[in-house]
Design a protein around this nucleic acid. Structure first.
Lengths: 240, 240
DNA sequence: GGCAATTTGTTCGTATGTATT
DNA sequence: AAATACATACGAACAAATTGC
């Protein structure tokens, strides 16, 4: 079903992770891979481009494609260290608590964020994330009721995005995230185990559908000592 | 000199920023752009791919390529809001102060970070960034002496990376950044105007050369209220 | 619902340019 | 200087999604 270049991309990742090619060494040349997978050069180049974009290899003209030390880039090469991975890494019990779930008319602020009119309702979901008995992340999310007609507690306890993509068959296109640090507010104190910290890391997220319409505005509020964001960049714009 | 697809990419950005295509509307189809620029489809598709990766457009199969509201993604679509841009945005005076510059043998920690042996010296640079009379960013950087033989105060007052790329002709390949939040240390208190804050946002940066060797390890320490990081993502991995 | 036209996605082939060894 | 490896560019064909008739 999938495109050839994507399945080759996954096969190459598998080989890299198995350690078939050692870090710092080269993967076979494009010509060699063409023969190995019996595809055209175009297809191989697309696979390699994906590997490069995701931080697995570094291509150098005239030399070859070098394996990078992805092991050192512990998991998601770019992105927030998610709750799931965080707990998996620590190897402790993790839990999602649905603190609030309601369908309501949007406030002025949310109306501005989600760019909706007065008639549209929105789903407001508040969830806290517990690791090792302590609530360390507070997620507030607002979904455009135009696209998400129904939400249940059960869905919120699992993955809302699975539900949106698989059950509702909506195609998520892209997202914008913004990381800032703020002083704690009332809700943070109410829902989180702050252990004396008076600041939280706030990740504002805007999730758009395929067609450019805004599906979700969310705020993820993290206890500062449990927060980590990793970015892998190919083009570097240095500060001054 | 440059590739066609790159110059077309820049031309299209220019047109988008001029507002020739309005937000939410489509840019001309690939076929149309082929004729307009008198190039092959392959070339146009490469240009469009760059536009998509950098958050200018959203491509939808069967429909076309839609202009995104880049104006709302104020400046670098992905990346740290740099000191330069921060000050430009605020429209205030900005200043770089070189607090320390020395060539020395690495400490154990730096030796581990830069992966160097006992013989190699490293350049240690400490710079603070002042906006509107207040020091809000503290940059500590360590350069592998093997690649950077000479550094001067003058270079540090300007752009070290310009010097590395243009004067030393080293090719920077990629970088890894890691954002965490920490309690202030002595140096933060010594060099920064913290205004009562007791935490800083720490951006750890590892900059690699083309061939995969590590050039720089840096720590950028920001006053929490002046920090902002923006991320534009096409593939979204949702937390749980 | 079906069909044709349009638009982007995937794959193949070929040729030439540029950097490295 | 020659061989190797990646980069750019062109052309062609078919697939898949969308839109309008």
């Amino acid at each position: 079903m999938n495109a050839k270049y994507i399945s080759i991309y996954h096969k190459l990742i598998e080989q890299i992770e198995k350690g078939i090619y050692s870090v710092g060494s080269k993967i076979p040349s494009e010509k060699c891979l063409m023969e190995q997978f019996d595809v055209s050069r175009d297809t191989i180049r697309k696979s390699l481009q994906m590997l490069e974009q995701n931080g697995y290899i570094n291509k150098v003209k005239g030399k070859g494609s070098f394996i990078l030390d992805t092991a050192k880039f512990n998991f998601p090469v770019t992105g927030l260290i998610s709750f799931k991975e965080l707990s998996a890494q620590i190897g402790r019990t993790a839990e999602t608590i649905v603190e609030k779930l309601e369908l309501k008319k949007p406030s002025k602020f949310i109306k501005e964020q989600l760019l909706i009119d007065d008639e549209t309702s929105i789903w407001k979901v508040i969830r806290s994330r517990k690791i090792d008995g302590k609530k360390i992340i507070l997620d507030k999310e607002y979904y455009n009721g135009k696209y998400v007609e129904k939400l249940s507690r059960e869905i919120c306890e699992g993955s809302i995005f699975d539900y949106i993509e698989n059950t509702l068959s909506l195609n998520i296109g892209f997202a914008k995230k913004e990381i800032v640090v703020q002083t704690c507010n009332e809700d943070d104190r109410k829902y989180l185990d702050l252990d004396g910290y008076d600041m939280v890391v706030v990740v504002n997220t805007f999730v758009y559908l395929d067609d450019g319409s805004l599906l979700q505005y969310g705020q993820s509020r993290h206890r500062p000592d449990k927060f980590k964001f990793v970015d892998f960049a190919r083009r570097i714009q240095q500060n001054i």
